[in-house]
């Protein structure tokens, strides 16, 4: 019965992959990548129960952390055009103060 859950997660990942391939904008593709990352966490947890080895849950926890950091980093890159400090990187210092 765990196999049915794994198959359902795989179907969802396939649908998200199709959306990532034919997505009209960039943000659709990032959304699909985010969905695939979350479903990977679920599939690792379920596969651990399917094989009788729930030790895989540590890997699932680490993958959830990496997925969140990766999505936020990619979004920051495309929103600000780089990884530089997002305040005012080119602002001049007020004169007279040093």
């Amino acid at each position: 019965m765990y196999l049915a859950v794994v198959i359902a997660i795989l179907i969802t990942m396939l649908l998200a992959l199709i959306r990532a391939i034919k997505g009209p904008t960039l943000y659709d593709r990032i959304l699909a990548a985010n969905i695939i990352g979350t479903k990977t966490v679920l599939i690792i947890a379920t596969m651990g129960f399917l094989f009788g080895r729930p030790d895989f849950l540590d890997i699932a926890l680490v993958y959830a952390l990496i997925n969140f950091i990766g999505v936020v980093a990619v979004l920051k890159y495309f929103e600000y055009g780089g990884f530089h400090f997002s305040g005012k990187p080119n602002a001049k210092k007020p004169e007279g103060k040093d």
Binding site: V5, A8, I11, T12, L15, A16, R19, L31
Partner: peptide
Amino acid sequence: LGSIFLIIGGIGIH
């Protein structure tokens, strides 16, 4: 229920 909601969401993004 979780599997059903997953497939509903997968259809929904299309």
